[in-house]
Simulated scan of single mutants.
Amino acid sequence: MKQRHWFNLHGWFALPLWLLFCFICITGTLAVFSHELTWLFNPNARATNPADMPAKPIAELVEVVEREYPQADVTTVISFEPYLVNAIAFSDAEHPYALAYVNPYTGKIQEVNTGVTFINFIRSLHGWLLFPWHGSYSIGYYLVSAFSLLLLGSLITGLVIYKRFWRAFTQPKLRLKQGKKTVLADLHRLAGAWSLWFIAIMSATGLWYLTQQILWHNDIDIEGHAPLVDASAVPTQASEQLPVSFAQALEQVKQRYPNFRNGYSMLPEHSRGMYQLIGGGGEMFYDQYSYRVAVNPYSGEIAQASSPADMGVLETVLHVADTLHYGTFGGLWTKSLWFIFGLILSGMSITGFMMWGNRTLKASKNAARKQRKIEQVQTVQQGVQ
């Protein structure tokens, strides 16, 4: 295929819905720092610890909420970075759904949020553009993840077009005095060469999200659900307090996985429900949901347990995709790197469109000029006749 054809193909990969693609890049870049932005703009979300106290067990934080709201039905405990509060989801007569922001060091409830958090909003906006979910699928999720195909196509065609791209690392070229067209082209090529690794990661993780959505849509589970308590083991007389407390369930998990750190744990929702304790274990590239333990609330036995050591290929990809997509595996340093290259990728979509716009405008002017010449020639010929 001729170079010109590869160039046109590269443009067509980049052009469809380029504005939406740029929007997805920008929201994803913000999502990388969603926790840090929450800490910056919401003082009630900060886990201040002036006395340098150790973090309290999350079971104690649940008790704090239950004492403050005696009728509360606590459902979930969500833990973030050490500098953020724990979010404890509950409901009662006055709060159909609420998140209590509890400082893990002081045990104080700093805020009760009954709306949408910034973290959930920006992740949802980036992940599925706030499109509604219809059961197990969302058109928005399909749309966003499908952009990975265009991104991959742009990467491949860009490599074909940009001969000897590695020179951008040793001999970067940015000609600032040769007009806007040259500056845009040089910026686009430089950004593309230095972002190759980042674009490859975004393409790969985006393809995984597309695959994951297809599996969800077809009700194919990557991970098994927590088992239910056998009906015969449920006491016939209902009791307000379960025989096995949340603290005891956590202790069981700690005995099985000493490095377990809570990520998203759920209390039993009904009489046959289990404690579902989900968290991380300190592995660098695995997310905070890679350890999953189900504890029987009546016997205290572990009914189901899984960790990275037990995972198959799909489960492993499931639990490393987010850390690679958002750059969370190395803490603030990798988040900062992902943020910078997210901005670069957003800028590339803009410079690419500007280059295409300039070429299109020039081609349109040339076509109009050619058409005028043809009309002038035809007019002269008619006059001679």
Rank of each mutant, 00 (worst) to 15 (best):
Phe33Pro: 02
Leu19Ser: 09
Ser34Tyr: 03
Asn42Pro: 01
Ile24Thr: 13
Ile24Val: 15
Phe33Asp: 05
Asn42Tyr: 11
Leu17Cys: 15
Leu20His: 06
Leu15Pro: 10
Val32Phe: 02
Cys25Leu: 14
Gly28Ile: 04
Phe23Arg: 01
Phe21Trp: 09
Ile26Asp: 00
Leu15Glu: 14
His35Lys: 12
Cys22Val: 14
Leu20Lys: 07
Leu20Thr: 13
Glu36Thr: 10
Ile24Asp: 02
Glu36Gln: 15
Pro16Thr: 15
Pro16Asn: 12
Leu15Thr: 15
Leu40Ser: 01
Glu36Trp: 08
Leu15Lys: 15
Leu19Asp: 03
Leu15Phe: 14
Thr38Lys: 00
Gly28Asn: 08
Leu19Asn: 01
Leu40Pro: 02
Thr38Ala: 04
Phe41Pro: 03
Gly28Tyr: 01
Phe41Tyr: 11
Leu30Lys: 04
Ile24Gln: 10
Ala31Trp: 02
Leu20Tyr: 08
Phe33Met: 12
Leu30Met: 12
Thr29Leu: 05
Asn42Trp: 12
Asn44Ser: 15
Ile26Cys: 01
Ile26Thr: 05
Thr38Trp: 03
Phe21Gly: 15
Pro16Lys: 11
Val32Asp: 05
Glu36Val: 09
Asn42Ala: 09
Phe23Trp: 13
Gly28Lys: 07
Leu30Pro: 07
Phe21Gln: 13
Leu20Gly: 14
Trp18Lys: 13
Thr38His: 06
Asn42Leu: 06
Thr27Lys: 00
Phe21Lys: 09
Ser34Pro: 06
Asn42Val: 11
Leu19His: 01
Leu30Ile: 15
Pro43Glu: 10
Thr27Ile: 02
Leu40Asp: 00
Ile24Phe: 10
Glu36Ile: 08
Leu40Lys: 00
Thr27Arg: 00
Phe21Val: 10
Phe33Thr: 08
Ser34Cys: 13
Trp18Leu: 07
Phe41His: 09
Asn44Arg: 13
His35Thr: 07
Thr29Phe: 03
Thr29Asp: 11
Leu15Arg: 12
His35Trp: 09
Pro16Gly: 12
Glu36Met: 09
Trp18Arg: 11
Leu37Gly: 04
